[in-house]
Design a protein around this nucleic acid. Structure first.
Lengths: 216, 216
DNA sequence: GTGAGATAACTTGACGAACAATTTTCGGGA
DNA sequence: TCCCGAAAATTGTTCGTCAAGTTATCTCAC
């Protein structure tokens, strides 16, 4: 048995890099992401750039219509509502299932602690990252590839929204940490409806803040 | 205001055609779907075929690892379990929400009637199609693009499983129609936990039948 | 000056050919 | 029979080209 190496094709690396840059708000919403510009920037063929853009369109991180350049989608109210609604459908049921099994993985608890530690300093990007990691860890606990994948797509698009309002301090870290704690407590107690309820409130809270900032 | 024409690029049409053929079990599991074969079959460039294959891989309808040909994934127990689990997370919560709103669209009711009519004759493919249409209509009632999309991906992969056991009559049409009826009734009555419960049982029923056939 | 229409520039859609890297297949030798 | 190396097949990636559609620009009539 030989030792396995982890390799990555140019195309995969390109997608990864672009995704990171988009989620970091380094590629801002509205600006055109043309196949040619990506190709020259990364010194790859236009075909390769095209393929990467198409994959990101599939993930919802870029938008495009025929014969027009791809753009990072603009943050708008309908989008935020739809994203949080879809996310809620998945997460609420997931938390209920976790509570039913009293299932709290070390990963989830570690992610919770990590968020807590992050919440003392004020680096917004790191905070968003830790928050996402916590929710992702809970979903991953159910060990369903398909569910994790569906959740991940939605979460990434939400990260996009959060990135676009990064400057605004619409996050009260301590409060969020507390809400996370109540979710964990409900799961630990096997409180099925409670886990769904506090999970839902946590999401509604975040959605309200985001919408308020969008209008104000 | 000019009249809008519906056009479709070669690539889109190619994806659509391949998807239909895969879901119709015309492209059987295990057989290689090479870029070259698709290109020559449809008389398109290899790049075009490659892009189409990549999109289908993204949908879970094809599987591929680096430098190896894409194949329709093989039906296996873990896959069925994962698919029905993920589907359940989405549909159960969706039915609860529909019940909470007492929301039954004409489309959903029409789809239910269509399935009923289908259930008298014995065309398995049409039956699967009608069943999928019913569940899709219920999810679409929530009018969330993201949720419908996530659900659609999972449903398509389930259709793949059903296609592979098409010969087996693991469906009791009348029974399924009855279960659909109970879901509708629960939603109409605003019975939130009931809607989730009967929805879950309906899915578990289908999953059990599929798993039993897989082993037997 | 302004608006409409023609024109040019830009961008994507699709194709063909080519070469490298990797996997699979196959045939021959121990 | 089993293993190994060569050949074939397949994907990864690039370049160049043309067509088709979109956006910007410019001109000209009013």
């Amino acid at each position: 048995m030989s030792i396995q190496l982890v390799t990555q094709s140019v195309g995969d690396a390109l997608v990864t890099s672009l995704r990171e840059r988009i989620l970091a708000d380094e590629i801002t919403a509205g600006t055109a992401v043309t196949e040619a510009s990506v190709a020259t920037e990364y010194k790859v063929a236009r075909q390769t750039a095209k393929a990467a853009i198409e994959r990101l369109v599939g993930e919802g991180l870029l938008e495009r219509t025929a014969h027009r350049s791809a753009r990072v989608p603009m943050l708008d109210e309908a989008r935020v509502r739809d994203l949080y609604f879809a996310r809620g459908v998945i997460e609420v049921r997931a938390y209920e299932l976790l509570a039913g099994r009293r299932l709290l993985t070390p990963e989830a608890l570690t992610a919770h602690e990590a968020f807590r530690e992050c919440s003392t300093n004020s680096d917004v990007a790191a905070l968003v990252q830790a928050d996402v990691a916590f929710h992702r860890a809970l979903i991953d606990s159910l060990e369903s590839d398909r569910l994790s994948r569906a959740h991940s797509v939605i979460i990434n698009e939400i990260r996009l929204c959060l990135a676009q309002v990064q400057n605004a301090h619409l996050l009260a870290p301590a409060e969020i940490a507390e809400e996370h704690q109540t979710i964990i407590a409900a799961i630990r107690d096997g409180d099925v409806p409670g886990a769904g309820q506090v999970g839902l409130e946590h999401l509604e809270h975040a959605e309200r803040n985001l919408l308020a900032h969008l209008r104000g």
